[in-house]
Each structure stands twice: as C-alpha cells, then as structure tokens.
Simulated assay, not measured.
Amino acid sequence: MLATALCGVLITGCSSGSGGEGDDAKTKPAAEPKTVAAGALRPLLLSQADLGSGYVEVHEKTESGKFDDVSVQGCPSLEKLGQSGEEAKFASKAETSFTYDTDATLGEELHSDRPSVLSSKLRALFGAYTSCPTYTMTAGTTPIRVSVAKSATPKLGDEQFAYTSTMELPSGAQVLKTMAVRKGNVAVMLVGAPALVDRHINAAVGKLPAGN
C-alpha cells in the first residue's frame, strides 16, 4: 500500500544534537534521563481498548530493506534525510498500526532517546518534511506527487510537531496527518487519517510516563 510506504519512510535520517549550560565551570551538567528500552515502550502503545470499536490492529513483520524502493525527488532536504542511514534512528522504538472501518489507517510509533537528541532529531525531521510545499515520491516505478502543509498542534508534552500530506495516488488523493509529541525522553508519533490522529493524540500522550 503506497500510503503505508510513506508512513514507513517518515522516520528516516536526521542529524542529532545535544546541549547543556552551567554557571559554574566545576559543575557538571545534569545527566539526562536514560533511554527507555523497546520492551518497556510497547505497553505504552495505543490498544484497541484505548481506541474503541471499529479499529482492527494490523500485524506486520518488519523487514530489512522494506522501503529501499521508495525515493524522493524535488526536495533537497528530504533527499538528504533519506541518505543519512543509521544516524537517523532513535535509540529505541515500538510501533503498531490499525485500520478503521476498513479504509482509514492509524499508525503509532514510540521513540526514546536522551531528551536533547529526541528534540534535535524531531526538529530536523519535521523541518525537512515541511521545507518543500511539493515534491515527488517514487514507490517502485510509481511517481506520486505529494503536497505538504504545516498543521496546528495541541499544547501537549514538552514539544509538538505536525504536518499534513496530500498524496496524488492512482486511485485518487489521500490525506495523511503526521503529529509528534515529545514528553521528556519519549516521543509519540501518530500518522494516519487527520480525524483519527486528532481524535487519539491526547490518549497516546496520556499513556507516556509522567515527566523525568
């Protein structure tokens, strides 16, 4: 499914960074919270019980090189992002996805890393995706025109990011919303039908650990 391919390509390369300040040269910066392991992230994912009726969880096996045939043209920032390789990944990750009424999708990813790294990478990621109002994504041999617009975000967690993508698929236009909220050393990202993302972002953030 081409829409799923775009969701999967979303978390790709971006630069990392960190920072710290101190008034006293003899005082070390406060240590950042440690990464939450993938096994500890999984119970924090949304479940069918959280979402309500009409949702069916999709069980997909993660395959190496699954998105190797997806490329981007016409947006230098995204092209560079896709070439970043292993540097792009967060320290740990858990994910799940659902269909709703058979034709709508909602995917969730949880990522954990040091707060400064999460912040830096999310800013770079969403900055790249919103840097070009239009670009072309090629999945296999199928070129897909994508239009992107920044979206408003609710005041949740420590940082919030969102944009909406409209893909011109052979079957017609499809709109996906991508929203991420960082809360300390964990970030939640929802990707899917805009109404579903807006409906469930509060519940997704509510399952994250209480502050660090």
Rank of each mutant, 00 (worst) to 15 (best):
128 A>K: 02
109 E>H: 11
95 E>F: 01
85 G>A: 11
96 T>M: 12
85 G>F: 05
101 D>P: 01
103 D>W: 08
95 E>H: 01
134 T>N: 06
108 E>Q: 15
102 T>S: 15
137 M>R: 06
107 G>M: 10
122 L>C: 03
140 G>R: 08
91 A>L: 13
129 Y>N: 12
137 M>Q: 03
136 T>N: 11
84 S>A: 11
117 V>Y: 02
111 H>V: 09
100 Y>E: 05
99 T>Y: 13
115 P>S: 05
94 A>Y: 06
94 A>R: 00
100 Y>P: 10
133 P>M: 01
103 D>E: 12
87 E>W: 10
120 S>N: 13
96 T>F: 03
109 E>D: 13
102 T>H: 05
124 A>R: 14
130 T>S: 05
123 R>G: 07
129 Y>V: 08
103 D>C: 09
140 G>K: 01
87 E>I: 11
99 T>P: 05
108 E>P: 12
110 L>A: 02
120 S>C: 14
125 L>S: 03
105 T>P: 09
103 D>L: 14
113 D>R: 08
84 S>K: 11
136 T>A: 11
112 S>R: 08
137 M>W: 02
105 T>C: 11
102 T>W: 05
140 G>D: 07
140 G>T: 11
82 G>Y: 02
107 G>W: 05
82 G>L: 12
124 A>K: 07
122 L>W: 07
134 T>V: 09
136 T>I: 09
119 S>Q: 14
89 K>T: 00
87 E>Q: 09
131 S>H: 06
119 S>C: 04
116 S>I: 01
137 M>Y: 03
86 E>L: 05
91 A>R: 12
91 A>Y: 05
108 E>M: 13
97 S>M: 03
126 F>L: 00
127 G>R: 00
90 F>M: 08
90 F>P: 02
105 T>S: 06
126 F>V: 14
104 A>W: 04
123 R>D: 10
114 R>G: 06
102 T>Q: 03
138 T>G: 08
107 G>P: 00
111 H>N: 13
81 L>R: 15
138 T>M: 14
116 S>M: 09
88 A>W: 06
115 P>G: 09
121 K>A: 12
97 S>W: 00
106 L>W: 02
110 L>W: 01
87 E>P: 00
131 S>W: 02
93 K>T: 12
106 L>C: 07
138 T>S: 09
112 S>N: 05
99 T>Q: 13
105 T>W: 07
90 F>I: 08
139 A>W: 06
116 S>T: 09
118 L>F: 04
113 D>F: 04
133 P>Q: 06
89 K>Y: 11
117 V>P: 02
124 A>Q: 10
104 A>E: 15
108 E>N: 02
96 T>W: 00
126 F>T: 04
138 T>E: 10
129 Y>W: 15
126 F>G: 03
134 T>L: 01
84 S>N: 15
98 F>M: 13
114 R>M: 13
92 S>Q: 12
112 S>Y: 01
110 L>T: 07
126 F>R: 11
118 L>H: 00
94 A>D: 01
92 S>D: 07
104 A>D: 06
111 H>G: 01
81 L>K: 14
129 Y>H: 09
99 T>D: 15
127 G>S: 14
109 E>T: 15
130 T>W: 05
117 V>E: 00
117 V>R: 09
